[in-house]
Amino acid sequence: MTNAAVPLTHPDKALYPTGFTKRDVADFYRSIAPVLLVHLRDRPLTLKRYPNGVQAPFFYEKECPKRHPPGIRAVALWSAHRNAPLPYCTATDEEGLAWLANLANIELHTTLSRGCAPDCPTSVVFDLDPGAPADVIDCARVALQIRDLLAGVDLETLVKTSGSKGLQVYAPLNTPTTFADTKPFAHAVAALLAKRDPDRVVAHMSRALRHGKIFIDWSQNDPHKTTVSAYSLRALTWPSVSTPLAWREVEHAARLDRGDLLRFDSAAVQRRIARHGDLFADHARLHQTLPRGPA
């Protein structure tokens, strides 16, 4: 166990039915802090707290608690709902991560923009959600289509598991843009793929139509929405992690039809980071611009 500067309350409390405790959550986040913090830097978090573990009720918390350690910095974003600025938490160091774990904040959900420029997303995201009986392998095939389509307009993409059922494809931008540009772009990509492959892809929310297909959720390209962060644990029955992947892994899994190759728990993610470093590093450093659309 690492040296706990932020003391955990009830560290031995199992948050997962597998016996994964609050201390395990804190230790996992501390152990991967060097790669995780890059992706959390200056990004407002929506807290999703599971005080009694993943099988008990959770609640969302946007407002950053007033008492927080120096490793948490509050940034104010305008809340249309309250008609006032609302302070959000951003994590800046290991102790901030441990403090979040102590709140039983298992999942880390961040905005696509940074707190200093809330209208400027740093990437475009496509959240691929399979409607049963479609699964992660169907997602993988659609993810590859998105990769290829965007490569056709000179955009490199990254991919990660959602840690739950689907995959997420990101086109890093890190150049000045607005959600007013990224959202219609993402919508156009989703609509184009749905038009080309209507049996496999849908581009609108209606659950009724999602059966057996992959829903490309483009609507998360919005200043008010958050997406699960790379390396976030997920509140499933086991400590699953939203795991950055290499495209060749996605190709490999799709070829072999092996969804299990795209599922990783906290220990597997620690090993992957030790071996391969941060497969999502480009998300924070690749500079790209959206193709110039029609006026």
Binding site: L149, P184, H187, V189, A191, L192, A203, P291
Partner: peptide, 18 residues
């Protein structure tokens, strides 16, 4: 479901064309 608006359709056509 809601059809994409004109801007999205234009973008889609431009993407296809390129």
């Amino acid at each position: 479901a809601r059809e994409p608006g004109a801007r999205v359709v234009n973008l889609m056509e431009a993407l296809e064309a390129s």
